[in-house]
């Protein structure tokens, strides 16, 4: 286990009920919860590995697969749905060759849907990481995605997805 990861677990002091915060800090660090983190957390907390795995699979917030560097959350709530959010999703799936829940092979994008982003006046809406995009059309969506891809290629060489995922708080 690398030094950095141990540091991320600093707040564990042996108290009961710390499992979920530990899993969150592991996910913050890696972008998902890798197998070695499960083993490590099981070990330091004295919880059987299968129980840790059980907790991870119970909560939808935890991921066992790496996420892309850009997480797309397309709103499919009532307002967006009647504003044809389905068309946005189709466009993204087509543009990125990825299905809902999937990550592009270059590790850049992960496509998810959410029930409501709370800005129905801007419907249809999506968020990419912390940025919100409103009043979208399929063409606008494609443009945004291509722009991100262009900017990303310019800033650094392409990387595979996985443990290079975003730093906590980034």
């Amino acid at each position: 286990m690398d030094e950095n990861f141990n540091y991320r677990l600093w707040r564990y002091d042996g108290a009961q009920g710390e499992l979920i915060p530990l899993l969150q800090s592991a996910q913050d660090h890696f972008g998902y919860i890798p197998r070695r983190a499960i083993k490590y957390i099981a070990d330091v907390t004295g919880t059987p590995e299968a129980s840790v795995y059980g907790v991870i699979t119970f909560y939808s917030q935890f991921r066992l697969q790496p996420m892309g560097r850009y997480v797309i959350r397309v709103c499919d709530g009532t307002a967006c749905h009647v504003s044809s959010s389905r068309m946005l999703i189709d466009a993204i799936e087509d543009e990125l060759s990825v299905e809902i829940g999937g990550t592009t092979s270059d590790g850049l994008f992960t496509l998810t849907t959410v029930a409501c982003l709370g800005c129905c006046s801007l419907a249809p809406v999506m968020m990419i990481n912390d940025e919100t995009h409103g009043k979208l059309t399929p063409a606008a969506v494609r443009k945004i995605l291509r722009e991100i891809r262009r900017r990303d290629a310019a800033s650094k060489p392409p990387q595979a997805g996985g443990e290079c995922a975003r730093e906590a708080g980034a």
């Binding site: 059987p48 590995e49 299968a50 129980s51 795995y53 059980g54």
Partner: peptide, 21 residues
Amino acid sequence: GKGVIAAVNRSRDVSVSGGIV
């Protein structure tokens, strides 16, 4: 006294597992 088996997943997908996956 081993406790290696646990319940995993949610709702209709619930099953038991003796390990990770």
